[in-house]
Design a protein around this nucleic acid. Structure first.
Lengths: 344, 344
DNA sequence: TATAATTGTGCGATCGATTGCACAAAGAGT
DNA sequence: ACTCTTTGTGCAATCGATCGCACAATTATA
């Protein structure tokens, strides 16, 4: 009677359990709910549980959500899964949420703002309890949509200029400062900066960190080119522009590891060597970056922990809707490898 | 009246739209459904749409799911987000699903089989319309759970020995054969193999491809060690074992790029050089692997396309529940870089 | 002009779990 | 013996959208 068994499994409902156990469905519901079971006699609880087991009952989360108004679903919007920093973030978010019985609805935004809004609308229509956005621009209309729909939202990895929501980011200014101090301590005086996109907090803040640290070291901080996106190709283009504009650079501080890799490519193209001719420091410490040639000195960001922190922040908001929207800074740590050496 | 507007937005329901427009809620529903709107007079349709707009109405997907029995949700289970091959797969799945209005519920399985079953049970309880599993073992109890619950399921990247579900994988045997032929054509005669875990189809099939190609080339195919997992550390350990057991190897064909990187580490540790002393070929062509030192010759698998194909296969199943469970092989392509050279 | 087909809308049941309220039975306190 | 709790269950409304069915009004056909 296999088909009968599986047919039963497909349609096993609280009602069918209750009938089989000879109780009302509300009683069955309470017997199966660990937080309510104590209100029901031991005897009935066991009968119901046994029957549920026998019929292969699985609570219908959809029906429960409709009734309770909470879906235990969190939407996560990423800019770009191809960028290796987002996988660990997603991982961290998922791990922290899973511990509390929440599941992740994952969507990729892409560059298009309108599309991101459509995605968020879709997630809201699916009645997510909260949102994690890794896509924030410095002033983001997408967040406005979330706020107006009063969906608890946490930004991760990228922040707005003026925080309107809870935010978990790395300490970008400090991270870049440490990178520059490292170069300065190796004797570099003419240091260039590959800045990230101006529309992103990471681009602006790391640039800010660069300028602060250069000034503090008494160095000229004007050798900057801005990359249009965090990619190798843009990094290579920006490096070419930087080297053309500024003669005599001995080091480059990149806003991002991919930009640093683009710099590698451009140096190779010009027959220059890293670190012999030019030292390079990246940012993010993304997976495998320790295996490139030369191994990249970079600023490590604990992406998985950042994701976890973001998820926890969101869970706090869900537990206490009045919790205020604080900005959490994750520490950034310099990892010295082979792409930096003393200035000649 | 901003708060009033947002309060209205929060509670805007078909009922409230219908009342404001002076029609029955079923009429409002039809007016808002593009496939039904033609049954309603133009005049009413516009009145309802305007009112929906004004109140910021968003259809409640939860309620719709409960009624229709379809959630337009697909569960995706990955073994390990930290492994860079899975991000592109996820990306591909998401892109193909989004085009059809489906969303992804993403969960990470980890090594633990019991945990994976729990995850799948959770996804089923959330009434996903289908599942994509990237975690398949060669005979997987997790799939049994899916099948018994009669949830349409597609395996991706990893297959079972005897297919019980639609499957989309790369042509592992052929891919490894091409890799070995490349080495043989460079004059290598003593070639070792770093095999992947025996519990995974990729491990077994690529090993099979290795043995086939070696035999076809008239070479001894016995120099094989098996890695316990696809990781650098296991790759290094396996390489050490391989080199200890087999003297005189001039090339290694690894079942996976991470294993190949482990081999890099072990060679370095022993003061050997790749490709001067030993040529190495990997498998997957994962992101950044072209930037390592030396750039890894490897077998490219179009992971994003594989993900898309898997999603399409699933969508077919959802459209036609009787569609049969075929196995789709994605082509694998050799990418020659700097880690292989002619045997001395 | 009577009948048939078509069009536009309303009614109400339904999906399955949750939960406030009611109430009976059993036990506790005086 | 009599009220006061406590304990265990049942009842029925509810969440919001969907859809088969019914029916009135309009238009087409004979």
């Amino acid at each position: 009677m296999k088909s009968a068994a599986s047919a039963a499994a497909r349609s096993a409902t609280l009602q069918s359990i209750a009938e089989a156990a000879g109780v009302h469905r509300s009683t069955a519901a309470r017997a199966l709910d660990p937080t309510q079971a104590h209100r029901i006699s031991q005897e009935v609880v066991e009968k119901v549980r046994a029957e549920a087991m026998r019929q292969g009952y699985r609570r219908d989360a959809i029906a429960a959500s409709l009734r309770t108004g909470r879906s235990r679903l969190v939407g996560v919007v990423l800019p770009d899964l191809a960028n290796p920093v987002f996988a660990p973030i997603l991982d961290g978010v998922g791990a922290a949420l899973a511990r509390e019985g929440y599941s992740m609805l994952v969507a990729e935004g892409g560059a298009d703002e309108a599309r991101e809004i459509a995605i968020v609308e879709e997630l809201i229509a699916r009645r997510v309890d909260g949102l994690v956005l890794a896509t924030a621009r410095r002033s983001d209309p997408v967040l406005t949509v979330c706020l107006e729909a009063s969906v608890p939202t946490v930004l991760v990895n990228r922040a707005e200029d003026h925080p309107r929501a809870a935010t978990v980011v790395s300490d970008d200014i400090c991270g870049m400062r440490v990178a520059v101090e490292h170069l300065a301590s190796l004797g570099h005086r003419r240091i260039g900066h590959l800045a990230g996109p101006e529309g992103l907090s990471t681009g602006i803040l790391r640039r800010e960190g660069f300028e602060q640290a250069m000034r503090a070291a008494g160095l000229d901080s004007s050798a900057i080119t801005v990359a249009k996106a965090y990619s190798r190709a843009e990094g290579q283009a920006a490096t070419a522009a930087l080297l053309d504009a500024e003669a005599g650079l001995t080091a480059i501080a990149a806003s991002n590891d991919l930009l640093a890799l683009g710099a590698y490519l451009e140096l190779k193209r010009r027959g220059l060597s890293c670190p012999r001719d030019i030292s390079i420091v990246g940012h993010n410490d993304m997976p495998l970056i320790d295996m490139v040639d030369p191994p990249l000195t970079t600023v490590r960001i604990a992406h998985a922990e950042m994701g976890q922190a973001a998820a926890r922040r969101l869970l706090e908001r869900l537990a206490d809707p009045d919790a205020e929207a604080s900005v959490t800074l994750m520490p950034a740590e310099l990892i010295v490898r082979g792409s930096t050496r003393e200035a000649y």
